[in-house]
């Protein structure tokens, strides 16, 4: 084999070796790029609902003394602030079953009712407080009215009070 041929063969072999090495390196690099590490971040936000009764309200008396209501003259509605961090909660206002303070016989033939309206992240006007209203995320202001009404007879003079429940619930 002549020197010229040898040199040509050697050059080709070298070129081949270099190419093979490069391919090997690239393959290894490509393999390394495919292996990705993963750092996982996780967190949890717990659903919450807060009911803050701001003022209790007052009962006024109807002229016929058959009704005690926050909507009568001398009465005033109650106010509550409700704050949620999700839209999974609902709110309702439950009327009482009986007076907490009242003259004897006041509970007889008495029907208790509530109504409420909401503003802020939730807007609603609910004439029946037993009905649930879905709450939006954030703060809502609630105005509550309540009444006790005789289906028969009238209320005697004396001190009256009852407890109405503003309930936030996951239905």
């Amino acid at each position: 084999m002549s020197n010229k041929t040898n040199k040509s063969v050697c050059a080709k072999l070298s070129l081949f070796s270099i190419s093979a090495a490069m391919v090997a390196v690239m393959a290894q690099s490509a393999h390394a790029v495919d292996v990705d590490g993963q750092a996982v971040f996780s967190g949890l936000i717990l659903d919450s609902c807060t009911v803050n009764v701001l003022n209790p309200g007052l009962l006024g008396v109807a002229t016929d003394q058959a009704k005690l209501s926050s909507e009568e003259i001398g009465g005033a509605p109650a106010a509550a602030a409700i704050v949620t961090n999700s839209n999974n909660s609902s709110v309702q206002v439950l009327p009482p079953l009986a007076f907490e303070t009242a003259p004897v016989g006041s509970d007889v033939n008495t029907v208790f009712t509530t109504k409420y309206n909401l503003s802020g992240s939730t807007t609603a006007d609910e004439p029946d407080g037993n009905n649930l209203t879905p709450l939006g995320l954030g703060a809502s202001a609630m105005v509550v009215n309540a009444a006790a009404e005789k289906t028969e007879g009238t209320y005697n003079g004396g001190q009256y009070s009852f407890v109405t429940t503003v309930r936030c619930v996951t239905p």
């Binding site: 659903d47 609902c49 807060t50 009911v51 803050n52 009764v53 003022n55 209790p56 309200g57 007052l58 009962l59 005690l68 926050s70 009465g75 109650a78 509550a80 907490e100 509550v144 309540a146 001190q159 009256y160 009070s161 009852f162 407890v163 109405t164 429940t165 503003v166 309930r167 936030c168 619930v169 996951t170 239905p171």
Partner: peptide
């Protein structure tokens, strides 16, 4: 359910706040 009837100096109706989880 967790309920609080906040102390108040008002007369007449009183309200309590209640939160219920499921």
């Amino acid at each position: 359910c967790h309920a609080i009837t906040p102390k108040s100096g008002g007369r007449g109706a009183a309200y309590r706040g209640e939160v219920c989880g499921k």
